[in-house]
Amino acid sequence: MADDNKDFEPILVGFFCNWCTSTAADLAGTTRLQYPPNIRPIRTMCSGSVDPIYILRALLSGADGIIIGGCNPGDCHYVSGNYKARRRIAGLKTILDTLGLENDRVWLKWISAAEGQKFAVTMRDFTEKIKELGPSPFRKNWSV
């Protein structure tokens, strides 16, 4: 399996909040911290505005991994958006897990504004872990 995946370049989608995680991403850039280019960031104002339907749509359309990045618990600019996000993701991942639908491809991470390093490391880990999982079975399945 691992060998098959050597050349596999996963398609990764990131929903990053405007306040903390986007700042961290920028800081990673300023500090020239390298991470794989697989991630395609989509800026949202808050992790709490990331509807599970975006995640499902991404997954079913063939994204190999989806990551949601928000402020640390308590730090949300909008008071509680990240707590709400966590509940939604908990529900969604439970469903995916129960139905055997690639729950491990959905990640939720808190990355604060000062954590440029954590951003880069997370992107590296995420890419690596999804590479290990191999291409999403949804990628080639036209009948979903």
Binding site: E9, A25, D26, A28, G29, T30, R32, L33, Q34, Y35, P36, P37, N38, P41, A120
Partner: peptide, 16 residues
């Protein structure tokens, strides 16, 4: 953002 979000963090894979 193709500098901090791209050029500076993916320096060794031009085509990607």
């Amino acid at each position: 953002n193709i500098r901090e979000g791209l050029a500076w963090v993916h320096q060794d894979n031009r085509s990607a």
